[in-house]
Amino acid sequence: AQASVVANQLIPINTRLTLVMMRSEVVTPVGIPAEDIPALVSMQVNRAVPLGTTLMPDMVKGYA
């Protein structure tokens, strides 16, 4: 199954992502693919992302 990017902590709005904030997990619905984690580093989220939330393309500025 495809692993997705999941928030490893609460990520406040406009925060630049770092590796420690993200983990890969097989979840439904599928979000951003886990292999994109390196590309997500330093991108900003456009909303607060609670712990355990799957990151979707529309949550990350410049990803989609």
Score class of each variant (00 low, 15 high):
residue 1 A to K: 04
residue 1 A to G: 14
residue 2 Q to L: 13
residue 2 Q to H: 06
residue 2 Q to K: 06
residue 2 Q to I: 08
residue 2 Q to V: 12
residue 3 A to K: 06
residue 3 A to I: 09
residue 4 S to A: 03
residue 4 S to V: 02
residue 5 V to G: 01
residue 5 V to I: 14
residue 5 V to Y: 00
residue 6 V to C: 04
residue 6 V to P: 01
residue 7 A to G: 03
residue 7 A to Q: 00
residue 7 A to K: 01
residue 8 N to L: 09
residue 8 N to F: 03
residue 9 Q to M: 13
residue 10 L to C: 09
residue 10 L to Y: 15
residue 11 I to W: 02
residue 11 I to C: 03
residue 12 P to F: 06
residue 13 I to P: 11
residue 13 I to N: 07
residue 13 I to M: 14
residue 16 R to T: 15
residue 16 R to V: 15
residue 16 R to C: 07
residue 16 R to I: 12
residue 16 R to N: 11
residue 17 L to M: 10
residue 17 L to N: 00
residue 18 T to V: 12
residue 18 T to F: 04
residue 19 L to V: 07
residue 19 L to N: 10
residue 20 V to R: 11
residue 20 V to D: 13
residue 20 V to F: 15
residue 21 M to W: 02
residue 22 M to Y: 02
residue 23 R to A: 09
residue 23 R to L: 07
residue 23 R to V: 06
residue 24 S to L: 05
residue 24 S to A: 14
residue 24 S to E: 15
residue 25 E to N: 10
residue 25 E to P: 00
residue 26 V to W: 06
residue 26 V to I: 12
residue 27 V to C: 03
residue 28 T to Q: 10
residue 29 P to C: 05
residue 29 P to R: 03
residue 29 P to A: 04
residue 30 V to Y: 10
residue 30 V to D: 08
residue 31 G to S: 02
residue 32 I to F: 03
residue 32 I to H: 01
residue 32 I to R: 00
residue 32 I to A: 01
residue 33 P to W: 15
residue 34 A to L: 03
residue 35 E to K: 08
residue 36 D to C: 06
residue 36 D to R: 15
residue 37 I to K: 09
residue 37 I to W: 03
residue 37 I to N: 01
residue 37 I to V: 11
residue 37 I to F: 03
residue 38 P to N: 10
residue 38 P to T: 09
residue 39 A to L: 15
residue 39 A to Q: 13
residue 40 L to M: 10
residue 41 V to C: 05
residue 42 S to H: 09
residue 42 S to L: 09
residue 42 S to C: 07
residue 43 M to G: 04
residue 43 M to A: 13
residue 43 M to E: 11
residue 43 M to Q: 09
residue 44 Q to G: 05
residue 45 V to R: 00
residue 45 V to E: 02
residue 46 N to Q: 08
residue 47 R to G: 10
residue 47 R to I: 14
residue 48 A to R: 05
residue 48 A to E: 15
residue 48 A to K: 10
residue 49 V to A: 05
residue 49 V to N: 01
residue 49 V to Y: 01
residue 50 P to G: 12
residue 51 L to T: 09
residue 51 L to H: 13
residue 53 T to M: 15
residue 54 T to K: 04
residue 54 T to R: 03
residue 55 L to P: 00
residue 55 L to F: 08
residue 55 L to D: 00
residue 55 L to G: 01
residue 56 M to D: 06
residue 56 M to W: 06
residue 57 P to N: 05
residue 57 P to C: 05
residue 57 P to Y: 06
residue 58 D to L: 12
residue 58 D to I: 07
residue 58 D to T: 11
residue 59 M to E: 03
residue 59 M to W: 14
residue 60 V to S: 01
residue 60 V to F: 06
residue 61 K to G: 10
residue 62 G to R: 07
residue 63 Y to N: 04
residue 63 Y to E: 04
residue 63 Y to F: 06
residue 64 A to L: 12
residue 64 A to V: 12
residue 64 A to P: 13
residue 64 A to E: 13
